[in-house]
Every structure is written in C-alpha cells, then in structure tokens.
Simulated assay, not measured.
Amino acid sequence: MTNLATRTAMAAAVLLAFAAGAGPAAAQTKAQRATALQKLSDCRKVADSGQRLACYDAAAEALETAEAKGDVVVVDREQAREVRRQAFGFSMPSLNLFERGEKAEDVETMTGKVVAARMNNAGKWVVELEGGAVWAQIDANEVPFSPKPGDPVRIKRASLGSYLMSVKNQRAFRAKRQE
C-alpha cells in the first residue's frame, strides 16, 4: 500500500470513528447507528408483508445511496483488523467501532521491511517501511549500522507508550511513529 493510500485509509478510519460517535459507550448504543441502517432494520416491524417489502426496498435503496455518497461506510471484520494493524504506533482515540463482535487483538509487535532510511538534522534515524509507515529514532543510542532498503524491521510496544525498533535483529532503539 502506498504512503498516500495508508494515510488515506487512516484518515478515513479516524473520520469514520468520529462521525459515528466512537466513544467507548456511545459506539454500542442504538442511537449512534447510521440512520440509513436503522431505517432498514425498522422495516422488520411492519406487519403487512406488502408494506414491509416496500419499506425494505426503499430502505435498501437509501442505504446503497448513502454508501455511494460516502455517508455510510461498510467495513468487514478483516478490514477492521487491517485498520488496527495499520494504526500500530499511532496515539489515537479508541476505535472500538472496529472491535464489534470480537475481542480486540492487542497488537504488541509489528514487522516490516525498510524502504528508505536517512538521518535527520539531529543525527537520528528516520526509517520508512513498506506500507508507508515512517518511524523516527527518539533516543540518544548510537545505531552501529545504517539501515538499508530491504532490511527486516521489528517494532515492539515498550513501557509508557514507547516503542523499540530493531533493524536486522541488531540492538533496538526507541522510536516514534510519524506517519
């Protein structure tokens, strides 16, 4: 996935979470359900079969239109998992919108490959990974080698919200996700 596509997916996920009122309790309430989806669900309450069918037809059309316009976004379970994996390293509000129906997996580590690496003005490494994630060194540890494209990377969650990055199984350094 390109850097722009990753940023777009993340922005869409965050906007979707905010638009849906994704607070921990609010995301689970019926009142927070998309109007178009709620209207479809309400059709089950119509007693007359002809009227119920007409209700379903109208509600299904409204839901398809809302999805086409981007007012409603439908995400399957695997897409939700991918959003959580792509968000690894970002400090964001709770996205339990993507955790409905299953226990959220706690992503503790991430692996990838270096696409590019450079030193910034402070003499610290900035490493871009496949998929567009960009991580910057935040500690003063000396990195005894230069990360090169294709090098394997492992990033793991550390204490107090920090992360440890290891390139080619060398000594890890503290890093923070920038993009």
Rank of each mutant, 00 (worst) to 15 (best):
G89D: 10
A17Q: 02
L37M: 11
A60T: 15
A62F: 03
A47G: 06
K176P: 01
L4R: 14
A22D: 15
V134S: 04
A68K: 15
A19H: 09
S94T: 14
V75P: 04
L63P: 01
R84P: 01
D106F: 08
S166H: 02
R85Q: 11
K69N: 15
K113T: 13
W125E: 02
V72Q: 07
S162R: 13
V114D: 04
G101W: 04
D139L: 07
A19R: 13
A5Q: 14
G70C: 07
A47Y: 07
A9V: 06
A136N: 08
K69E: 15
G112C: 06
A62T: 07
P93C: 02
Q86V: 05
K39M: 09
P147V: 08
D106H: 09
A36L: 01
G123Q: 03
G150T: 06
A19S: 11
D57K: 15
F173D: 00
P147G: 07
Q51Y: 01
F98S: 01
T35M: 10
G89W: 07
G123L: 06
T109Q: 12
E61V: 10
E67P: 01
K30V: 14
A136M: 13
G123V: 03
A12L: 09
V126I: 12
P152H: 01
A25K: 11
A12Q: 10
D42V: 00
R33F: 04
G112V: 06
G50E: 10
V115F: 04
E82G: 11
A36K: 02
K39Q: 13
V73W: 12
G131H: 05
N96I: 07
A117Q: 01
I138S: 12
G101Q: 03
E108A: 13
V114R: 02
K103Q: 14
A116H: 12
T111F: 07
N169W: 04
A87R: 11
D139A: 07
L97H: 06
A175K: 00
G70S: 08
A140I: 10
K39C: 03
R100A: 14
D71E: 15
F88L: 10
V134F: 04
E142M: 09
L40T: 00
K30Y: 11
M165F: 00
E99N: 13
R52H: 05
G50C: 04
G123H: 05
E64M: 12
A140T: 14
A140H: 10
A122D: 15
V167H: 01
A175L: 01
K69S: 13
E130T: 11
N169F: 08
Q178W: 02
D42P: 00
Q51D: 08
V143E: 02
F88G: 10
A122R: 14
Q32H: 12
F173M: 04
V167F: 03
L63A: 06
F98D: 00
Q178F: 01
L4Q: 14
A116L: 09
Q79I: 08
E82I: 15
D48S: 13
G21T: 05
T65K: 15
A17S: 10
Q28M: 11
V115Y: 02
V115R: 12
